[in-house]
Each structure stands twice: as structure tokens, then as C-alpha cells.
Design a binder for these strands. Structure first.
Lengths: 340, 340
DNA sequence: GTCCCGAGGGTGAACGTTCACTATAGTAGC
DNA sequence: GCTACTATAGTGAACGTTCACCCTCGGGAC
């Protein structure tokens, strides 16, 4: 695998710079790390030598000496969820504020392998801290014995399914209430894949709210999160089901619902109101604009980094904006119930 | 910013393992790196010592000694395009095949800053090679003087707009031909943002093909890639324009076209055929399924890594599958021209 | 018995920094 | 002119590995 490398110019070291400048290596090191405390002439000679040799410090050597690498690892399960990108963006930005770079590590395989990999990650010297967004009970138990802080901030299970705050579903109650205020009485829930905690939670809150408010549910349509399944479900609905509002577990499911409704000749929202979840771009190509729930996933990333900063004993990045993580955005796909 | 760190257990080193096992540090090093060449008793004592001390090798020290870090850097401009994720996935997989980890570095700011940052990246010792997916003329010129190979494989300009192979548009001709075979004679092109090379190329090939085949173009509808603009454009079309097929520059633009058509009461594909580009999931919620162009962006990532492997003088990862990068997928949104 | 060989294992240096000390020159106070 | 102090600069070790080289021991050929 290795083969012979093409000869590459060897980098100048701090010692060579020192020789050229006629000073000691320590003086060059000082020049690089501090501002003051040097005579003007010395400073200038060092500067010139650095420029002439095109010197750039070797980060590996630096990290070896002072065990600061400026890097944090962010552990995800394999597979990419839409929200994970935003979580990553939030974490990256927060880390940047405290002078760190984050690196994404995806962690698959059987539990023992994952366990080992994280231990290696923690002790290999490359990272100053680790955040795992997937549960790691074994590692968590041993966290104190590791040379690097490991924060477990579970938001995804091993199959990249949202758990934790990202699976929070209480706003489903507010959606149902909002629809009830618009005169709706008979609902349908288009659920996601029940393997996902988020899908189960949304269904549970839906059912509870219907019951508590004395409304009617025609039923729950289970899907695999695909628009196709949702569409099929709508097409299969009896014409006289009386449903005037569909609460979908995601925007893509809602898109399938709308497609099915349109194919049956039902107008949205005049005949049927539809809501989604995620506030994804697909909502904007649904004819009247899709009512949805905006989830500020970046904030989850920021929180994780803040927690790690605390474990590292360093000044944490700025806190997130206040307010809830989730927020309903009412759009054209929801309207008054027919005849209301 | 630093503050005091909570005391952490210091890692055992190779020397301590050696002491405990009653051998020299070199013997432990041998145990870690090679299989054979040790008496069974020695091997066992070393193994036991490693386990007892919970020893794990320090990668920084290792990298310092033999300047192998097993890491490659992948440079993107800031901002995330859909395709960039696939490019990244392809690069990651290819790098894994040759025993490397890739790290994403996003590179913004003015040209000189970017230049400096890449030089630092190349010489800081953290990476064995660098691929830039955005053009870096200054760096490219100096590549030979750097201590690390830098491959510039431009696929995105500074604003994350696709260029290079990802902006390749020749299949637009095949789309137009395919529609012509279905009896269409009068076309409309729903273009993207002309700031993007990909949008300009698709428009150019569209216009050329129309002309070469002696077909008719009602015109070109310029958009900012948003479904909204595309929808508006369709709604503004004169009723008697005679257009029976719309070639859109992306699936999202096509989605806007379909939405506009539906709002006007035009059926897709009976009254209007529509094609997109990207083969994105949004195509599947468009009522009849959207004809589109599938772009295998991962292959671009793999190619980039192969090129870097060559520059590194190491065995490259497996070549990609053969066949073109782009491929038309005909679906329900395209049909025979009305009356054909 | 001597010589040679190979396998197993040890020694010391090197990688490029930074830290903790130490040394020197210049300056102020007396 | 001496001491004490400060500002500036230098010295050597240390960080945890691996590499190149050397040493030792046992066995077979002569």
C-alpha cells in the first residue's frame, strides 16, 4: 500500500530559522507565540528568516509537546439525516467560537467495536474532547478513566433515528388545537416509521390531544416516512370518512398526503387542511405552502459543544438564543374547516 | 480562554508497558506493529502489560516520528450544495479503501487568506495530502514547493456553484431529443440562476439543440433556482403559447413548473411534459413522478481521491464504475405530446 | 572447538516543539 | 563603583514513538 513517495521538499524547522536569524530556537518560538518582549532588531531578523525559509510551524510537534490539538470529535451513527447537517453546522460554529475545529466521526459496527473505537479516539491524542450524539452506555460508564472528556449527548440512535430533544413532539398538541380553532373536528394522523422515537412520540401526543380535547380521530396512517405510502393511504380513504384535517409526521409525508388529496380532487386547504413537520423546502412546492414545525437543530449542536466545553473546563461558547427549539409556522395548507 | 483543566488520568506510555512486562520499549513497539518475530512468552507478557495498563498508542507521537497521519484534507468553499454531500461520501469511501481518513475543510474569505490557509494546511503536518474542490490558482502554481501534495480538482467556484464535470450539460440534448420523439415540437426552458455555470450550460445546450433539430422554443424562463419563480413564470405564460414540454434546469425548478401547471388546470403529462435535473427526492412527490437526470456525484469524490493517491505515489482506490456520470431517468412527468 | 548464522531483543538517537531554568546586558539607586 | 533589578536571550530536557544499529545466545557445519 505504501510504495515510494515522490521526494518532497523537507520543511524548515524552528532551529534552522534560528540559525539563519542568528538567535536561539527558543527566541523563534517566542516570536511565534507572543507579541512583546523582544528587541526590535531581533524581531525583525526572525521575521526575515521565517520569510526566507518559508517556515510554517509543525502542528504535530506542537501538539506532541503541549497536548493541545485544537480539535474536537463529533460522533454520529452512520447514515445521514437531514437534521444532522444542521446539528453539525451548529456544533462547528460553536466550536469555532472557542478556538476549536470539529471533526465528524461516524461510528458503525457492533457495540463492542464502537466501544473500542471511541476509547481509541479518546486516548489517541488527536482530540481534546469528544461529543457523541449517539448513546454509548459503556463508554459513558468509563468516561472518568479516559484521558479526554467524553460527553454523550444522545440525539440519534444507532440507526440515525432522532431521539432526545430532536424527537420532542409536544407541539403536535398545539397543531391540533390550532386546527380545532379553525373549526376542524375530525382528524387523521399520517405517522412516520414507528421504529423512530420521533414518529411514536408524535403519534402519542396526537392521540392524547384528540382525546383530551374531545375531538375525533378517524385513525392513524402508518408510513415508512415515504410520500408514496402517505399518498396511497389517502387514496384508500373512504370518501365519506369526514376527515377535514391531516396532521402528518413530516413534510415529506405531508407532501404525499397533498399529492393524494389532489389526485382525489380535494382542494387544499378548502376541502382538507394538512400540516407537516421539519419546515423543509419541499413545503414550498406544495401548492398553498405547507404549515409545518421549524426545528432549530443547529442549537442541539451548540448545546453539545457547550457541555463539552464545561467538561474541558474552558470558557463555553455563547449560549443559544432563547425560546423553544420547535416553532409552528402556519401557512396556506391549513384553513377553516369546510362549512366553518 | 484556557482556564484550568480538570485533572485527567495520564495515559500509560510504551515505556511503562515495557517496564511492567520486563522488556525494552522497542519490543513493545514491535509487538504493536508486527505479528511475528517474538517468543511466545514475551508476546504474552507484553499483551498482559498492555491490558493491565489499558495502554493505547499515542497517534500524535507516532505521526511525529514517521510523519504518517493517515489523514487527507478535502477543501470546499463555504455553503453546502446537495451534491457536495455525495462528493464527500464518495471521497470518504475511496480514501477509506486506501487506509485514509478525510477531513472536510471549508475555506472562505478573500483570496490571499485562502491561499495562506491552504499553505498552512499543506505544511502543518496534520495531513498527508490535500484535495481542493474549488480553484486555487496561486496554490496550484506553488504546489511543487509544498511538503504535501495538493491536488486541485475544481468542481465548485468560491460560491459553491458547480463547475467542472458537475456542470456538464450535454444530456439536455438527449432530453430534447427524447421529447421530440414523443411528438413535442414547441418547448420552454426553465433555467436556473445564470451566475451558475451549470445553469448557463444547460440553457446553451437547450438552445443549440432546439436550433439544430429544427424545433421551436417559446423562450427561456430565467429563475434563481427557486420553485416560486418557476411557478410564477408558468402562471404568466400566455394561454395560447403552444408549449407542450418544459425542460427545467433542476428538479426544484421543475417542481415549481408542475405546481404552476396544476394551478392553471394543465395536467401533467397529458397537457404538459416536464423534466428536471438532479434526480432529487422532490421528484417523487410530483404527481406522476418527475423525469430527471441522475448525477453520480460520489464518483467525482472518488476521482479526486484517486488523483491525490497518484500524487502521493500510493496504490489508488478502485476506479469507479464505468459509464457516464449523468443518466436520464424517464418517469411519468413526460408523455406523448397532446394529439400526437 | 571454532566459526558463522539467524532469531530475538536491547540501546540510543531522532522527529520539532515548548517549558523551566539560567545567563547576560543594560539601567537605576545608592 | 557597587548592588539589585529588569528585559532579553540562551540551554537542555521532555513529549511518546519508531528507526538504525548493535548485542547475545543457541545450533549446525566443518
Amino acid at each position: 500500500m505504501t510504495g515510494t513517495r515522490p521526494a518532497r521538499r523537507k520543511r524548515a524547522t524552528i532551529v534552522e530559522v534560528a540559525q539563519l536569524a542568528g538567535v536561539s530556537h527558543q527566541t523563534v518560538s517566542r516570536y511565534l507565540r507572543t507579541d512583546g518582549g523582544m528587541r526590535e532588531g531581533t524581531r525583525e531578523r526572525v521575521r526575515a528568516a521565517i520569510e526566507e525559509l518559508d517556515y510554517r510551524p509543525n502542528m504535530i510537534a506542537r501538539a506532541m509537546r503541549d497536548r493541545r490539538t485544537g480539535r474536537l470529535a463529533l460522533v454520529f451513527p452512520p447514515g445521514t439525516a437531514i437534521s444532522s447537517l444542521e446539528v453539525l453546522a451548529g456544533a462547528t460554529r460553536a466550536a469555532e467560537e472557542i478556538g476549536y475545529v470539529v471533526e465528524v466521526v461516524t461510528l458503525g459496527g457492533p457495540p463492542e467495536t464502537r466501544h473500542m473505537r471511541v476509547l481509541e479516539l479518546a486516548d489517541c491524542g488527536l482530540f481534546e474532547g469528544i461529543v457523541s450524539l449517539t448513546p454509548l452506555p459503556d463508554v459513558e460508564r468509563r468516561a472518568a478513566t479516559l484521558s479526554t472528556p467524553v460527553v454523550v449527548y444522545p440525539q440519534y440512535d444507532e440507526a440515525m433515528r432522532a431521539i432526545g430533544e430532536l424527537a420532542e413532539a409536544s407541539l403536535v398538541a398545539d397543531i391540533v388545537d390550532g386546527l380545532a380553532e379553525r373549526g376542524h373536528r375530525r382528524f387523521l394522523h399520517a405517522a412516520g416509521d414507528y421504529h423512530h422515537a420521533s414518529a411514536r412520540h408524535r403519534r402519542d401526543v396526537y392521540l392524547e390531544t384528540i382525546e383530551r380535547r374531545g375531538l375525533e380521530s378517524f385513525g392513524v396512517l402508518e408510513t415508512d416516512w415515504s410520500p408514496q405510502r402517505a399518498c396511497r393511504g389517502i387514496l384508500d380513504l373512504p370518501a365519506d370518512c369526514g376527515v377535514t384535517a391531516v396532521v402528518a409526521a413530516s413534510d415529506w409525508v405531508a407532501a404525499g398526503v397533498v399529492r393524494g388529496a389532489v389526485e382525489r380532487g380535494w382542494r387544499v386547504p378548502e376541502d382538507l387542511s394538512v400540516t407537516g413537520w421539519d419546515n423543509s423546502p419541499v413545503g414550498s412546492v406544495m401548492p398553498p405552502g405547507l404549515t409545518s414545525v421549524d426545528v432549530e437543530s443547529e442549537r442541539v449542536g451548540r448545546r453539545a459543544i457547550r457541555q463539552l466545553a464545561a467538561a474541558l473546563g474552558i470558557e463555553p461558547p455563547a449560549p443559544e438564543d432563547d425560546g423553544p427549539l420547535n416553532r409552528i409556522v402556519w401557512r396556506g395548507s391549513t384553513g377553516l374547516a369546510p362549512g366553518a
